[in-house]
Amino acid sequence: MLEIKGLKVKLEEEDKEILKGVDLTVEPGSVHAIMGPNGSGKSTLSYVLSGREGYVVTEGSATLDGEDLLDLEPEERAALGLFLAFQYPVEIPGVGNMTFLRTAVNAQRKARGKEEMNATDFLKLIRAKAKELKIDAEMLKRPVNVGFSGGEKKRNEILQMAMLEPKMCILDETDSGLDVDAMKLVSDGVNALRDAGRGFLVITHYQRLLDHIIPDVVHIMADGRIVKSGGPELAQEVERDGYAGIMAEVPA
């Protein structure tokens, strides 16, 4: 499903290489986790995949179901089924959460040649999904993420994911800032979406999330590369020993 090969990325503004050759394949139906020290390039990878400006791909490729992602506009990538739950969801004063989501849902339906969802059906759907995530109706009316608490913002990301039903979901530290109960809610939300056709890339610092969303593969990213991959036990190793041991194994 998601196939990243030898991806090298530098910043547009300065000559600084952030990703130094990333190889990663996420198969349909699987959950891959990425862990790694601060500044190792995890968010950069997720931004480059979703099409944010400011990065230059110097080498390598990234495809989703065989389609070259890197040439596409962000909205085209979304239409293909890529979704990024942001590490820092953006506040957009003046744009209502509901308007935003309805516009997004219908834009994607249109891009896929489906009919637009009418207001009533949309309302029903979003109410149901919001309820599952314990997002109250009042929050839906507020401008996108404005005045939301850290945890509310993260739940709002998952709500968007649930509404858009993407094929490939990238979650960038969705667990950071969540209380224990919210972590459970969010994990349930993610697990509810798990199916044979959908892939997940879960970026996290904590093994706790991976107790709820059990990954098939755990990758360790350091200094712009995936330096080690393994099963869920790798996350436990990180939790217990930190990154020092793993880094020591990596050839310089």
Binding site: E73, P74, A78, A107, Q108, L164
Partner: peptide
């Protein structure tokens, strides 16, 4: 630009 990217990443075209 941040806001614009956020909207586009959800599938909304640049114009709208």
């Amino acid at each position: 630009e941040e806001g614009l990217f956020y909207l586009r990443s959800r599938g909304i075209e640049e114009g709208p």
